[in-house]
């Protein structure tokens, strides 16, 4: 697997990462190396093997439905880049 510059750009877009143009070839090379390295998995016979998502065979625990959190807006927004009237501000969302 060898990624082109265009591949790198489209992955970076999907991940919302700005990448400097001059860095693209190096990313392409590094990412291709990594993908080539992991591609050895393709040769492994995994027929009938269940995918393993968690190290432990446990089921989800359930929480009792009760309100346990109180308003901490002031604290949480004290570390926010931009707020107004209790809202987080972002460049205009167009729908």
């Amino acid at each position: 697997m060898s990624l082109s510059s265009a591949d790198v750009q489209s992955i970076a877009h999907l991940a919302r990462l700005s990448i400097e143009d001059q860095d693209i070839p190096e990313y392409a090379r590094n990412l291709s190396d990594i993908l080539n390295f992991v591609e050895q998995l393709g040769k492994v016979d995994t027929k009938g093997v269940d995918p393993m998502a968690h190290p432990l065979d446990m089921a989800q625990r359930l929480r009792v439905d009760e309100v346990s959190e109180s308003d901490q807006r002031e604290l949480f927004q004290s570390i926010a880049p931009a707020t107004e009237a209790g809202l987080y501000l972002v460049p205009r969302v167009i729908e």
């Binding site: 501000l89 460049p91 205009r92 969302v93």
Partner: peptide
């Protein structure tokens, strides 16, 4: 998202 104008911004 609140689209009332916060000087060109949206409020979340």
């Amino acid at each position: 998202s609140m689209h009332e104008d916060f000087e060109g911004m949206s409020g979340i």
